[in-house]
C-alpha cells in the first residue's frame, strides 16, 4: 500500500510531470513536491510524487553500507 518507486522526471507541465520507470513513461502528479526539477528522481506513490530523492544522501548511504561491510 505504501509501495513507492523511484522514477526519473523527464518533463514538467504545471501540476504534472512525465516520468520514466525502467523505460516506460508515466504521468505523475507533483502537487506534493512543487520543488521538483527535470532530471530529478522522485518517489512515485499512487500516481503522485511524494518525495524528491536526494542523490548525495543516496551515495552516502551506499558508502556507509560499504564501510559497515568492511569493504572500505
Amino acid at each position: 500500500m505504501c509501495l513507492a518507486i523511484p522514477a526519473l522526471v523527464k518533463s514538467i507541465d504545471g501540476d504534472t510531470a512525465e516520468v520514466e520507470i525502467g523505460g516506460v513513461l508515466r504521468r505523475a502528479g507533483i502537487v506534493l513536491t512543487p520543488e521538483v526539477k527535470e532530471g530529478d528522481y522522485i518517489l512515485l506513490h499512487t500516481g503522485y510524487a511524494i518525495s524528491v530523492i536526494d542523490k548525495d544522501d543516496a551515495i552516502e548511504t551506499l558508502e556507509v553500507l560499504n564501510e559497515i561491510a568492511g569493504i572500505k
Binding site: 500500500m1 505504501c2 502528479g29 506534493l32 499512487t46 503522485y48 511524494i50
Partner: peptide, 13 residues
Amino acid sequence: GVGFETTAPTVAA
C-alpha cells in the same frame, strides 16, 4: 480511501 500518511495526502489532493 485506505492507507497511512503516505497515501492520505494524495487523497487529500
